[in-house]
Write a protein that binds this DNA or RNA. Structure first.
Lengths: 144, 144
DNA sequence: CTTTATGCAAAACCTTTGCATGGTC
DNA sequence: GACCATGCAAAGGTTTTGCATAAAG
């Protein structure tokens, strides 16, 4: 139970006068306590027990809200649906192209490339993304 | 007119016994002669003059076919719709988060990160992606 | 009590698929 | 002539939106 994280998130919401509904809290708790980079649908399925009437729209609205308030990141870089993660220190992702699962990895931040590209292209750069694609050991196993 | 490219593509199709329809040729020509990383819809709109009855399905089918035969790459990493580019030497992309446009840039290939992550994660890595995000000069201008 | 969130339904958007017809080799 | 591609329509998956009701501060 990542209580510390959760409380930081709750504080951020309070600061920005975002109301705390039971559904929103449940989504926050779910995201604070996982490193699985869930999709909206995974969150939806997981909360359906506790909130039988919850809808995808509510989950989406909340994810958008949490993202806007700097609590979570949306990862659109994978294959189909967006995945979401708690905001932490900068890091990169390994993605399994078979099952879509993601895992974090750390590597010296490639900030120098941002500067290089900014000069080169005239773009105003504020972000970069490094992603490594392959097949995870589970999927590799089951392919045999 | 990038005749050289186009002929390579045509040769690849012939080699693999893929039929050359007028629509397919037009899509090939479009992609051989642009560096704009178009979406399916941009291609569709562009060909609608010449082929009034062409449908998105045809474009999609062809893009899938060209991708399968190693002639084009699909770039799914951006925001909404996939973008497509002619296959060339490895390179990276700068993406404008306002208009979605992409431009290529070159940088020493980060193959060593693949090896590092392979050891670290147990994934079998075969690809990586480096993308720099910002605002292009056109969008920066129009924001004022 | 004011304002925002929820749940529901509908729709938007991108992409895929089934099928009859037409075109390529 | 055999087989594949096209065009059309329909549907699938993800995400957004409008609106009445319910809940939060």
């Amino acid at each position: 139970m990542n209580q510390h994280r959760l409380e930081e998130g709750l504080a951020l919401l309070k600061e920005n006068r975002i109301r705390l509904t039971p559904q929103r809290l449940a989504i926050l708790e779910y995201l604070a306590n996982t490193d699985s980079h869930p999709t909206e649908d995974e969150i939806y399925k997981s909360l359906s027990n506790k909130f039988p009437n919850i809808t995808n729209a509510t989950i989406y609205n909340n994810l958008k809200c949490l993202k806007k308030n700097g609590i979570i990141n949306e990862l659109k870089y994978g294959e189909d649906a967006s995945r979401f993660e708690w905001v932490t220190e900068p890091h990169y992702h390994v993605v399994c192209k078979s099952c879509g699962r993601m895992r974090d990895f750390n590597y010296p931040e490639l900030k120098e490339v941002e500067a290089y590209v900014e000069k080169l292209s005239g773009f105003q750069i504020n972000h970069h993304l490094f992603e490594v694609h392959g097949i995870c050991s589970v999927c590799k196993q089951s392919q045999k």
